[in-house]
């Protein structure tokens, strides 16, 4: 832990403080539930960031791993009577296995082909959930999924449970990014030839990144199922996958913090749109999709590196300027003497 605080001291401190005080600044139950959903999305986005930002593998089917995780735990607890804890473990493993199989199958694909393959996988999973009625309840979904027994399961305790897991996922990913494994991912992203010549098994590492991201999405999905108590296939489609993608791109694909910030930005915009739609009657329906699509286009056009890297480079430039100005002053002073 000492190392952690040394490496990301400031950002981590600010993050923890904000995360802990949020439910007290916004004591409304509604905002706590919004906070929970944002936390769940952040887990998926951080996983997607590992596979997309670090290893450079686009995935347009991330919501399907989320869905597989959700339904795994829901089915195991409601149909087989297992405890949510067992369900949650399974909701991490089953999507990881799916990610492994899919990852093996599409190992040779790159760019558009990879995007298309993951997109198709997303559709297959959503349709699969819809059609496998005896198990998943089909389009009408599942009800009375048991809650996670965590300090009574109130909105507040769920908030801390989920953001505790977000914190674990965040730290794990930050550690990973600054280790030999993370550097191998980033090396693959820049040059597969160079990575190979350094002894990195490109296929294996891409697969690893894919499996970890699937696992994170699955954990989040399981928690989502138990938190909501009801499930239907609708949130696990392409729309949600694009939303996850937008979060990662806005925040800055190459930054784990970026995935978290991107999730928050999208969360704020969603909430803003909900509020606005109460005032402006025309803003109902899938307006958020249009807005997110627009943001994605604008980001790609004007800030392709994303928010966090942009702010970081601005900050570094300002620091350099300040240092240069100081040096100049010193020279002037010397000259005056």
């Amino acid at each position: 832990m000492k190392q952690l605080t040394k490496k990301w001291g400031k950002s981590l401190g600010i993050y923890l403080a904000l995360m802990i005080i949020f439910p007290f600044v916004m004591p409304d139950e509604y905002y706590r539930s919004v906070g929970i959903i944002i936390g769940l999305q952040a887990i998926v986005a951080i996983g997607l960031c590992l596979v997309m930002g670090l290893a450079g593998q686009i995935s347009l089917g991330q919501a399907s791993f989320w869905g597989i995780g959700a339904y795994t735990s829901a089915v195991l607890t409601t149909k087989f009577g297992l405890t949510p804890l067992v369900g949650l473990v399974a909701s991490a493993i089953v999507p990881a296995v799916f990610a492994f199989i899919l990852g093996r199958a599409i190992a040779g694909l790159q760019g558009y082909y990879l995007a298309m393959a993951t997109l198709a996988f997303g559709y297959i999973v959503q349709i699969g959930i819809q059609e496998w009625e005896p198990v998943t309840g089909g389009a009408s979904g599942m009800i009375s999924i048991p809650q996670v027994p965590f300090f009574g399961g109130s909105e507040l305790s769920m908030y801390y449970l989920i953001w505790g897991i977000v914190t674990c996922v965040l730290l794990f990913s930050l550690n990973l990014m600054h280790s030999r494994i993370g550097r191998a991912f980033r090396a693959i992203h820049k040059s597969e030839v160079a990575a190979t010549s350094m002894g990195i098994d490109v296929r294996k590492f891409k697969l690893n990144a894919f499996v970890v991201s699937g696992m994170f999405a699955g954990i989040s999905g399981g928690l989502y199922a138990h938190y909501m108590g009801i499930l239907d296939p609708q949130p696990f489609g392409m729309h949600e996958s694009i939303k996850f993608l937008t979060m990662v791109v806005i925040g800055g694909m190459t930054s784990i913090w970026g995935a978290l910030i991107g999730t928050l930005v999208i969360g704020f915009i969603s909430e803003g749109l909900v509020m606005l739609s109460e005032v402006v009657p025309g803003l109902q329906g899938d307006v958020d999709t249009i807005v997110f699509g627009g943001i994605l286009v604008l980001i790609v056009m004007f800030m392709p590196e994303g928010l966090v890297p942009r702010i970081r480079s601005l900050y570094e430039k300002a620091q350099a300027k300040k240092a240069a100005a100081n040096a100049e002053q010193r020279v002037e002073r010397k000259a005056a003497i």
């Binding site: 952690l4 794990f172 550690n175 990973l176 280790s179 030999r180 494994i181 993370g182 690893n208 970890v212």
Partner: peptide, 11 residues
């Protein structure tokens, strides 16, 4: 070097 993904992530 040989550290696994898990041991790297858990530092």
């Amino acid at each position: 070097t040989h550290s696994s993904l898990f041991s790297c992530g858990m530092s």
